[in-house]
Simulated assay, not measured.
Amino acid sequence: MQLLLSNPLLILRWLALIGCAAASGQLLHALALPAGLFLGPMLTAIAFGVSGAGLRLHKQVFRFGQGCVGLMVAHSMSWTVLAALAQSWPVMLITTLLTVLLSAMVGLATVRYGGISAATAAWGTAPGAASAMVSMAEAHGADPRVVATMQYVRVVCVVMIGALVSHLLGAGDIASKALVPAASTPAVQLNQLLPCLAVIVIGITLAAKLPAGALLAPLLIGSALQLSGLMQIALPGWLLAFAYGAIGCYVGLRFDRATVRYVGSRLPTMIAGATGLIALCAGCAWLLAWVTGHDFLSMYLATSPGGLDAMAIIAVETHSDVGLVLAMQTLRLFAVIITGAFCARQIIRLAKA
C-alpha cells in the first residue's frame, strides 16, 4: 500500500485497468456473451500485462472473488440436485478418467512435436488446478514459468471457447437478461448480505491450503446452511461483478512481457495443445450427452479441461446443470492433483522411449 501511494503513475495504471476492465466487461455482457463480466476483464488484464504495465493483483482479492462464485453456486444446490448427482457417479468417474487420459496424450504429443521438455509438458497439460500444478512442477524439476504459461494459456482458451460455444447454442439470450438471476437480486438487505460475507471469509480462511479451496469451502458451507434452512443466499449484482472481474484480472495479469518473450517461440504449440485438448473433451462431451441424455452444453462445461471458477460462472449464467458441472470439475480437480506425479512420470518415460 505504501508503494502504491508513493507512486502516482502506478495509481493511474490501476485506475486505468479498473476502468477498462469494467467497461469491457459491461460491453461483452450487453452483447449477451456468457461470462462477459469475467471475459472482458481477463482480456483487458492480458493487454495491460503484455504491454508492460507491471501490475499484480493480490492473491487474497482473487480468493475473495472465488469465494463469491462458490457461494453463488451454492444457491443452485438443492436436495433434488444432490439426488441427481448421486445417480450420475458412474458418468462422472468415467468422464474424469477420460479427461486425464486425453490430457496425458496431448502432453505426450506436445513433447514429440512441440519441442517442450517432457517434464514441463507433463505438468503444463494437466487439466486443472493451475496453481497446484505450477508448485508441484517446480518441486519435480520442471520449468515453472513455462508450466504456468501453459496452464493459463489453456484457461484463457477454455474460457473464450466455452463462452463462444454457449453463445452459439443460444445461451447468450438467457445470460443477457440478468447477471445471475438465481443468486443475484437488485436490492439485498444488510442482514442478508452480512451472513453471506461471513461464509465467504470463513470459507477462504479455513481452506487456505487446499487447491481451489477458496471456491469449494464457501460452496460447501453455503450449501449446507441453505439446505438446512439456516440461511438464504442472496448476493448483490455489484458484488458478483466485482468477483468476476477480480478472477479475470488475476488470470490476465499473469501474462507479462517477460514471460511472453521467454515462451514466445513455444506459444503456438501451447495454444495448439490447449485447443486440441478442448476439442477432444468436446467430442467426449457429445458422446456422453448422447448416451446419458444430458444436454450437450452442460456436459461440455463439465468436461472442459480446467477453469473450475470460470466454468461455474458460465454454467450459472447459461442455466446449465450447475450441479453436474461443478461435481465433475471438482472430481477432476482432485484426480489431477492425486495422479499428477504418476502421469508426469509416465509421459516422461514414454517420451524417452
Rank of each mutant, 00 (worst) to 15 (best):
V155Y: 11
H140I: 03
M150L: 15
S117H: 12
Y113R: 14
R145L: 04
G107Q: 11
A142R: 10
S131I: 12
E138F: 09
P144L: 00
A109D: 06
T125E: 15
Y152K: 07
V134D: 09
I116L: 12
M133K: 14
V155K: 12
V111T: 01
Y152E: 13
A121D: 06
A122H: 08
Y152I: 04
H140V: 06
G124F: 10
P144A: 00
T120H: 15
M133R: 12
P144N: 05
V134F: 14
S135T: 03
A129K: 10
T149G: 15
A139C: 01
D143L: 05
A132I: 07
H140F: 09
I116N: 12
A148P: 06
A130I: 05
A126K: 00
E138N: 11
I116W: 04
Y113L: 15
T149Q: 07
V111H: 13
S117D: 08
S117Q: 02
A148Q: 04
A148C: 09
V155S: 09
A129I: 07
A119W: 03
A132H: 09
G141E: 09
G114I: 01
Y152L: 02
G141L: 01
R154H: 07
A109F: 13
A129C: 02
S131W: 01
Q151Y: 02
V134A: 15
A109M: 15
H140G: 05
G128P: 10
A122G: 14
A139D: 09
W123C: 00
G128A: 13
M133G: 11
Y113I: 08
S135H: 11
V147S: 04
A130K: 08
A130F: 14
V153N: 11
A139P: 00
T110M: 15
A139L: 08
G128K: 15
G124P: 07
A137P: 00
G114C: 06
P144M: 06
H140Q: 13
A122L: 07
T120A: 04
A119Y: 00
G107P: 00
A130N: 14
I116E: 08
V146P: 00
A122E: 01
A109P: 07
R145Y: 05
A119I: 02
R145D: 03
A137D: 00
I116Y: 01
M133W: 02
V147A: 12
R112F: 11
I116R: 13
T125G: 03
D143T: 09
A109S: 12
G141D: 05
P144W: 11
A139E: 04
Y113Q: 03
V147Y: 04
A130T: 02
T125L: 14
S135P: 00
S135Q: 03
G107T: 08
S135E: 06
G128V: 11
A118F: 11
Y113H: 14
Y152Q: 10
T110K: 02
G115W: 14
T125M: 15
A122W: 14
A148I: 00
A132N: 09
D143E: 04
Y152P: 10
M136L: 10
M133Q: 13
S135M: 13
S131P: 04
R112C: 03
M133L: 03
A129R: 00
Y152S: 08
G107M: 03
P127M: 09
V147K: 07
A148K: 09
G141T: 08
A148V: 01
A142T: 12
V134K: 10
V155E: 10
A129E: 06
G128R: 13
G128Y: 00
